[in-house]
């Protein structure tokens, strides 16, 4: 519903003008993201279009991709975001396609055939599903407290400070839990690959 507002293209002048006025760090970040948007928008959009084959949806996913990007801590000093952006966009498109398959829609026969026909995305999707299963397994094996920290930080989008307060532990402890979670998840994926 509110995507109508997100849909309005990022206005370069607006963003840059605002950045000129204040020299704060926040605007530096905005500036960096706006630049990345200008630079990579077209590539990512056509990649998304090739996957979802619908302009509106592709535009939506493009916005989502940059939302994800803007949530990356320290993004302002990253110099080569392109492959990251591509991966995020691919993930979002796969999620979208999977949802489409689950939901029976009023389709024409052609569209249905397209859905069934083996496409390159299919393999990617299989890999991604496997990947997710591994992560789920790793997360379910985590100690309860680490799991709790992860849920609060990742799903409730709390800051680490808020997580520490909620769990009544030090922030260092929260950081340890999260690092443990990251490590376990990574090694689960790597073990699976071997």
């Amino acid at each position: 519903m509110s995507s109508i507002f997100l849909d309005s293209p990022v206005n370069k002048e607006d963003v840059l003008h605002k950045a000129d006025i204040s020299d704060s760090r926040q605007s530096q970040k905005e500036q960096v993201i706006a630049r990345m948007y200008q630079e990579h928008r077209q590539n990512i959009l056509s990649h998304l279009l090739s996957m979802v084959k619908n302009r509106d949806i592709a535009e939506d996913l493009l916005q989502d991709t940059f939302v994800r990007l803007s949530n990356i801590p320290g993004i302002e000093v990253i110099r080569q975001p392109k492959s990251f952006l591509m991966k995020v966009a691919t993930n979002l498109a796969l999620d979208h396609l999977r949802q489409q398959q689950k939901k029976p829609v009023f389709e024409t026969d052609e569209a249905l055939e397209e859905l069934i026909s083996p496409e390159p995305e299919h393999l990617e999707e299989v890999i991604k599903t496997r990947h997710l299963e591994q992560l789920q397994w790793a997360i379910s094996q985590l100690p309860e407290r680490a799991k709790e920290a992860l849920v609060l930080a990742r799903l409730q989008e709390m800051t680490l400070k808020e997580v520490a307060k909620e769990m009544d532990v030090s922030q260092t402890m929260v950081e340890k839990h999260l690092k443990n979670a990251l490590q376990k998840c990574r090694s689960a994926l790597i073990t699976d690959l071997n």
Partner: peptide
């Protein structure tokens, strides 16, 4: 990041992992 060429890629890989962990956590 500037120390080693691979550092940036490793960092972004961690960011991706973190995002996927979100989906996995939801499922769990």
């Amino acid at each position: 990041l500037e120390q080693e060429k691979e550092h940036e890629a490793l960092y972004l890989e961690t960011c991706l992992l973190w995002q996927d962990m979100g989906t996995a956590t939801e499922k769990v």
